[in-house]
Design a protein around this nucleic acid. Structure first.
Length: 630
DNA sequence: TTAGGGTTAG
């Protein structure tokens, strides 16, 4: 079905020339576009032996296997039952191998249940089995149980090894507890018996990267260089990936060169990180170079490489090209996975082609267990963005029927859209429902609902909700306070808005350009134009430069308060700073000029900005400017 | 037999 869909669309688009430069960067000419490169690349790829990676792996892995292959949890239960019935019972090592396989399939709860049955059946423990158990609790975010297993080591007289400690470090990192992870690492270094190895270092490097602390990660890599445990491909790739995610692609490429100079060869994962980094920046030439480089090194793209390309094409609004990539994957017998299809679906959503997005979703449904919460969220987000609330709500109900648990993203998306279409009751109902289902609202959920309430003139309910949020020990950030200040201004409670604004510094919060602009707008609405003007100066002094929206707001404020004397100076300031009046402000200014209420010296300024001084024309041009656009 | 890196959604 998808192939048919793909063929229909690509036929219409593949002959066109494309400019890949929606972000204004490194555009290739249409005749040498990245798309042409990708096509050439795949032509090369087609000439290569079929399925190079898959066949090699199978040949290598087959003879090693001494347990029946377990592909799902049902297999695991059957195999375990058979093992328990064997006499004599299989060795602990065999049970370990079995549990290791099940853990690799991410059936962590099943592993714990098997372990408990092993205890009942008096099958012995060893360091390995307890480490597997710790790993399972870690992945289930139950560090408390992981630590109690560690206690078991001492009770049984077993000594945790480097695997055990590395697993614990990883567990803390999974819970974002980097300091505790680093604590174990430091104890290992200080202890002497069990020194960290390259995997331990790699785990901690990942932890620092997760926290966005690239410099700590790099420092650790440098420390490794000084010692006996040298950084390997994984350590370098982790740092390269993190730098790419922070858009520091040049730094990432420097590490890439450094790594190769040390004789460490990159693999498909390293290239995928770099490719993703350059694609996100729109650096197509670099992307093409990297793909060429991979080919030159006989590194074959995998499903993730293709998914990055699909996602990039989709984000650029080139769903047709993304379909082409999916088709190439299918032709190459590389099965697109849920990430690939999800990106494609998102691409259709972005273009408003919701029926095509729905078709991809159905295709995924037909492939068994491919649909997960993320896929549902993507489609729900698409429906919401196009105000198809009924379809979005229907999908939420379908998710539950299919046993998928809607997460915080699902609810935040839906609550936000209900607020935006004015269905506040539905938004509040979803807010209650999510809590009843055990999904605790986060700061973003509160921000969404508070914004909805404030924009719909329900300030007292908003304040009540804000208090509820404080009671839950959720830290309100500047976004929350800005929403409340705006709500108070909308409710014409300017004094309360001012009070809240003034209290920000004592709460350790710094107003941003949005906060200042909203407060300036509120002051103008309340007729307090001189205070608004003071605030405009103050924000500049405090290092928060006003933007175009700020100037438009204050200029309109002065005009609406019939204080036209100051307007000329403000317009001059705005133009000097490279901002311009939006259609709404322009209309007000032109009106003043027509009525001869402002300095005619404004005329050249307005002409400088190329405004047509013609009212009907202005009305036609009037855009629906929104604060968020600035 | 046990531990670390890459692609998707608000």
């Amino acid at each position: 079905m998808l192939k048919m869909m793909i063929r229909t669309t690509t036929a219409a688009t593949s002959s066109s020339c494309y400019c890949w430069n929606s972000r204004g960067m490194n555009c290739l000419h249409s005749n040498s576009s990245f798309l042409v490169f990708v096509n050439n690349y795949f032509a090369f790829f087609h000439s290569q032996p079929s399925k190079p990676i898959k066949s090699t792996r199978t040949q290598l892995e087959q003879p090693k296997r001494d347990l029946p292959k377990i592909t799902n949890v049902e297999d695991a239960f059957n195999v375990f039952d058979r093992m328990l019935q064997m006499r004599p019972l299989p060795s602990v090592v065999r049970f370990n191998k079995f549990l290791g396989q099940v853990a690799k399939l991410k059936h962590y709860s099943a592993v714990i249940s098997f372990y408990n049955q092993m205890v009942v059946s008096r099958i012995g423990h060893d360091v390995c089995i307890l480490t597997i158990l710790i790993n399972c609790y870690c992945h289930l975010n139950q560090m408390g149980f992981s630590l109690s297993v560690l206690g078991k080591f001492f009770k049984l007289g077993l000594e945790p090894n480097v695997f055990t400690f590395t697993t614990l470090i990883n567990g803390f990192l999974l819970e974002n507890r980097v300091a505790e992870a680093a604590g174990i690492f430091n104890k290992m270094i200080a202890g002497g018996n069990c020194q960290p190895n390259v995997v331990t270092y790699g785990t901690l490097v990942k932890g620092f990267c997760m926290k966005g602390n690239n410099s700590a990660a790099i420092q650790l890599l440098r420390k490794m260089e000084e010692g006996a445990c040298k950084p390997d491909l994984v350590v370098y790739s982790t740092i390269i990936d993190s730098l790419c995610k922070d858009t520091l692609v040049d730094d990432a490429l420097n590490f890439f060169s450094e790594m190769m100079c040390k004789g460490i060869s990159p693999d498909v994962i390293t290239y995928n990180s770099l490719l993703n980094g350059v694609c996100k920046l729109g650096e197509w030439k670099e992307a093409a170079r990297l793909l060429n480089d991979m080919v030159g090194k006989n590194i074959f793209p995998d499903v993730c490489t293709f998914s990055v390309l699909v996602d990039t094409f989709c984000k650029e609004g080139m769903a047709g090209e993304a379909e082409g990539v999916v088709e190439m994957m299918i032709e190459r017998d590389i099965e697109p996975d849920r990430v690939t299809y999800n990106s494609l679906m998102d691409g259709y959503c972005l273009r408003g082609e919701m029926s095509k997005a729905g078709k991809v979703f159905k295709l995924m449904l037909s492939k068994g267990s491919m649909v997960d919460v993320v896929c549902c969220n993507t489609l729900i987000n698409g429906y919401c963005k196009h105000k198809m609330m009924d379809e979005a709500m229907m999908l939420l109900r379908e998710m539950t029927c299919k046993g998928l648990v809607p997460d915080i993203v699902t609810y935040n998306t839906l609550v936000d859209s209900c607020c935006k279409v004015g269905k506040l009751g539905d938004a509040q109902q979803l807010f209650s429902e999510m809590q009843a289902c055990g999904q605790l609202p986060d700061v973003q959920t509160y921000a969404i609902l508070l914004d909805g309430l404030c924009k719909n003139q329900q300030i007292s309910t908003a304040i009540q909700l804000f208090k509820e949020m404080e009671g839950k020990k959720l830290d309100a950030d500047i976004v929350i306070y800005t929403i409340l200040i705006e709500g108070l201004c909308i409710a014409e409670k300017i004094e309360s808005a001012k009070e809240l604004f003034c209290s920000l510094s004592s709460r350790g919060l710094q107003p941003n350009v949005r906060t200042y602009t909203i407060m300036i707008n509120g002051l103008c609405i309340g007729g307090l134009t001189s205070e608004a003007e003071k605030l405009l100066i103050e924000m500049e002094e405090k290092g928060c430069s006003p933007n175009g929206w700020t100037y438009n707001v204050i200029i309109r404020g002065f005009i609406n308060n019939n204080e036209t004397v100051t307007v000329t100076g403000l317009i001059q300031q705005m133009v000097e700073k490279g901002f311009s009046a939006d259609a709404w402000t322009t209309e007000l200014i032109v009106d003043l000029l027509v009525k001869d209420k402002v300095d005619p010296a404004l005329l050249p300024l307005m002409q400088k900005e190329n405004y047509e001084l013609n009212l009907p024309q202005l009305k036609l041009n009037r855009s629906s400017d929104h604060p968020n656009k600035h």
